[in-house]
């Protein structure tokens, strides 16, 4: 029932009463316990540089500031991973919009593309991360529900076909719309990129993506020094910080220099076709014009730049 407080309330001159003293002790103990509970954070803040904490959004960095960021990140990679890497930031090429097509009649589901992605993009080793997931699908349906990623038998199985899925670089990207801090955006060549130093890690984009294209760095990525790919892009395959989202960038550190993406080069069957959608003579345009092409989940209105086709 009711305590004795009301009778005490009017008394103003008992400042040093036992109760007040006890309260003070309690408050001190509470504060000490609070500091103790949060003590692990000190270790973390020691790791976090002031420059990193205060770094501005990618779009607001001047070329000089950007340069300084790359140097800082290269030094951090050396310090944390023991590797000498070069971080560059190739910009979109004028008159280029990237498109990718995948021939489902030819793909055998060997997952070499997923492996190449893993190596090229400096993915976390223990989790076997990759931007590509290969679905084994039942012939007679392109319903993803019939798919399975955990197959482990010689491929191709005669009753199956295989469908690798990665970022579709949508023209109407739900992941970009939902980001609360504009940490992800679509560049002029169609690539949806993430500023890993701006992302707050809310994972709303991961929930919004209909293609399971985004990955979160649940822990600090582990990559052995000798396996680190030193050819790195700020917006693509540099080693990501803990707690941020990452995604396929069509290997923009390669493709913006005219090279093929790593997954295409790794494909042993030549199921992948990559190129410039704005160039009417490109291979990708030939596929779009001459093959029966479809995009995944077209009904969602995401307008992918990744196409699937069959030969027969």
């Amino acid at each position: 029932m009711s305590d004795s407080t009301p009778t005490q309330l009017p008394v103003l001159n008992n400042a040093c009463s036992r109760r007040t003293a006890l309260k003070a002790i309690g408050a001190t103990l509470g504060a000490a316990a609070f500091a103790r509970a949060l003590a692990p954070l000190t270790e973390w803040t020691a790791d976090l540089s002031v420059d990193e904490f205060l770094q501005k959004h990618y779009m607001e960095l001047s070329p000089e500031e950007l340069k300084a960021v790359f140097v800082r990140l290269e030094e951090e990679t050396k310090q944390d991973y023991g590797a000498d890497v070069t971080i560059a930031d190739p910009r979109p090429l004028p008159g280029v919009k990237f498109g990718y097509a995948l021939n489902l009649s030819i793909c055998i589901g060997c997952r070499k593309c997923a492996e190449a992605c893993h190596q090229e993009n400096n993915h976390d080793r223990p989790s076997g991360n990759s931007y590509i997931r290969v679905l084994e699908m039942a012939k007679g349906s392109i319903d993803l529900e019939q798919g399975n990623v955990d197959y482990d038998h010689p491929v191709p199985h005669e009753d199956k076909f295989y469908m690798p899925v990665q970022c579709q670089q949508c023209d109407n990207p739900p992941c970009v719309h939902v980001c609360p801090v504009e940490a992800t955006w679509k560049e002029e060549d169609g690539i949806v990129v993430v500023d890993y130093n701006w992302c707050i890690g809310c994972r709303y984009c991961e929930a919004a993506c209909p293609y399971h294209a985004r990955r979160f760095n649940w822990v600090k990525p582990q990559v052995p020094t000798e396996e680190i790919n030193p050819d790195q892009g700020y917006l693509s395959n540099r080693i990501r910080p803990q707690g941020v989202i990452e995604k396929c960038t069509y290997c923009l550190h390669r493709t913006r220099e005219g090279r093929m993406p790593a997954c295409l080069e790794a494909c042993p069957t030549g199921a992948r076709v990559f190129g410039n959608l704005l160039d009417p003579d490109s291979e990708i345009r030939w596929v779009l014009a001459n093959k029966r092409v479809f995009v995944l989940k077209e009904e969602l209105g995401t307008r992918p730049s990744f196409f699937y086709f069959f030969d027969v």
């Binding site: 959004h57 939902v178 609360p180 801090v181 992302c199 707050i200 890690g201 809310c202 994972r203 910080p241």
Partner: peptide, 25 residues
Amino acid sequence: DLGRPDRFWHMIPGIGRFNWPVSML
């Protein structure tokens, strides 16, 4: 739920980049 609570300030309009009105968040 945030992976990077230290970057909370990125959401503050003015000093961060607030993706309003497009992001429901």
